[in-house]
Design a protein around this nucleic acid. Structure first.
Lengths: 349, 349
DNA sequence: CTGAAAGCGCTTACAG
DNA sequence: CTGAAAGCGCTTACAG
């Protein structure tokens, strides 16, 4: 069927024929591996242009064994911390000549489905990837990084290092940050600080641990963690419930979205922020600076986290090993949502 | 060097040898293309397990010609509309068995660098992708979709259809939405509505056109567009400037982030929202429901947009053609940031 | 500098 | 149901 031959994408042999050279010569001008005479190079280039030839990526990868893709495995791609970390990884990867494939872990409500994690891992490893970065901001990510076969180069980007991690990790020290934020509130004169956590792994989250650290260090009994969520709407519900309590004057939230929701719930419940209650968020997303009141929060550099994670992966790929951890810094940004407790309230209760 | 043979990843021939069958038989149990006797299948499966064998993706793609990746090309991956659209595409792609590679267009301030766009396209096409979805929310995306060679299946996801698009587009009708939002404000009694646009392509954005449509239809002179940005901080600057003007009672913003910033700027400039000025956003991101005041905004279904875009691409890949467009719907969500103008103000000015 | 040869790891007809 | 053969599109030694 000569008719269908028009549809076929041109291959290297077509270029060679049109240019009047051998296939390896075309390959040589393409890869630049060996010098080619100016004249033949010219003929090859114009044949490539004429035919609109593009090398077949699969064939190249097969023969060269070199991969130019890395995978990111994450439980979410849209939330601020996740998407910003992904951006950091992507920028660094692109600069190093790698393309990024994203693989999302389907995360059920509370428990992690091991079979789904395995499916995702299989899908990723069915592609020619040089290595993978797992985002360990949630249970699904932690499970995934444990389930990855040790044969593929893998590093993780985390908020706080996982116990007994066997692969290199880049992390933000959110435990220290949680502690600092709590100490700030205590320093303002609040008798205690309550904590609205992110959904999963409640006892294991760095920021939750840091909050408890600070309280214990100050000799204050650690109140029960208030289970939260990722979304602002859930934060509002919590805020509404908190508004009814007289003993709550300071709240540390798992992230900014929840914090803005908590503030709204408090407001709807008749409490002012920071007049009646001080609220601190986590992450410092752009909106935190312009809400009313603007948010006191912990600024975390997710772009840098992503870059560092890629840096570790690149080391692992090229040298076969990488340092087991590398941390980025966090800092408290004080804005309008916190203040000293009302006189006579914190002291008198 | 027998020593290094341990490091080599097992290939199909290794499995065949261990299982005591031929290579094609292993391939058959892997692909399920032809029946294999139970006994041999068992032997093959256990050999695969024993060796930890995984098929080489590059070899598979080369011989089968089938690709299992699609690419998303976008100017940004973190902003609400972008990341949510990407999520929609990813979910649909994953359900259909495709993995997604993300390719970010480096977008300079104002102009689009054609060379950079070309570089990104080359990088994407150097991978074995079945097709690509270009996110046309900005100039870079629009340029990219025009620059793509017609040989690769490509569709775009847009806010509003591009003039003379040659490839299938899924879009949100933000022109109609911008018009409806403006009409709502006019209906409340405002004499005119000002518009803070998103950065690029000011005259061409659907929401900007819709805003002008509504004004013209009401016989109102269209005021100059106030050039905005994507970020809340820029919105605040605009709000501050607007606070000094007595003729501004209603503002339609290019997105929610900017709207929250504008409200903050107005507030810092001594104006209340909606008391003095009504503000409408665009997108309805989760935070819009809990800010103080909560935001009246245009809800756009980006997840659905992403799904539709992937649907078009899949059609294009399998059947060679797809409808030239497909729209998702938008709706106005009325909350606290809008109200009728103060009596005696709008009327008397 | 350049061509003929071999081979990357897999799948798909071809013959049983 | 199953093996021997051919071939996907490219690159890398091998000989000039």
């Amino acid at each position: 069927m000569a008719i269908s031959s028009q549809i076929r994408a041109p291959v290297i042999a077509d270029v060679a024929r049109v240019a009047g050279v051998s296939v390896p010569t075309v390959s040589r001008v393409l890869t630049g591996s060996t010098p080619v005479s100016d004249e033949k190079r010219e003929r090859v280039m114009s044949a490539i242009r004429e035919l609109g030839y593009r090398p077949n990526a699969a064939a190249r990868a097969l023969v060269s064994g070199r991969q130019s893709m890395i995978a990111i495995v994450a439980g979410n791609t849209t939330r601020y911390g996740y998407s910003t970390t992904i951006q950091g990884i992507e920028e660094a990867a692109r600069a190093a000549g790698y393309l990024v494939v994203i693989s999302v872990l389907e995360v059920p409500e509370d428990s992690v489905d091991d079979a789904k994690v395995a499916t995702t891992i299989d899908l990723v490893l069915s592609q020619p990837v040089a290595g993978v970065v797992v985002i360990e901001f949630d249970e699904a990510g932690i499970h995934a990084s444990k389930a990855f076969p040790s044969t593929v180069p893998m590093v993780s980007a985390a908020a706080f290092p996982t116990d007994g991690a066997t692969s290199p990790q880049a992390y933000l020290d959110d435990r220290a940050a949680g502690q600092a934020a709590t100490e700030y509130l205590l320093g303002l004169g609040h008798e205690t600080v309550h904590h609205v956590s992110l959904p999963q792994a409640i006892p294991r989250m760095g920021r939750t641990l840091g909050w408890a650290d600070a309280l214990r260090a100050a000799g204050i009994e650690v109140p029960p963690v208030i289970p939260g969520a990722w979304e602002p709407a859930a934060g509002r519900e919590v805020g509404l419930a908190l508004a009814a309590r007289d003993d709550v004057t300071a709240v540390l939230c798992g992230n900014d979205e929840v914090a803005v929701g908590v503030i709204r719930g408090l407001y709807d419940g008749g409490r002012s922020v920071p007049g009646d209650v001080s609220v601190i968020g986590f992450d410092d997303e752009p909106l935190a600076a312009v809400t009313i009141p603007s948010l006191t929060t912990v600024s975390q550099d997710f772009i840098d986290l992503g870059r560092r994670a890629f840096g570790l992966l690149e080391q692992l790929i090229t040298s076969g090993s990488a340092p087991s951890l590398s941390s980025a810094s966090a800092s408290l940004v004080v804005r309008e949502s916190t203040s000293a407790p009302r006189t006579g309230r914190a002291v008198a209760s």
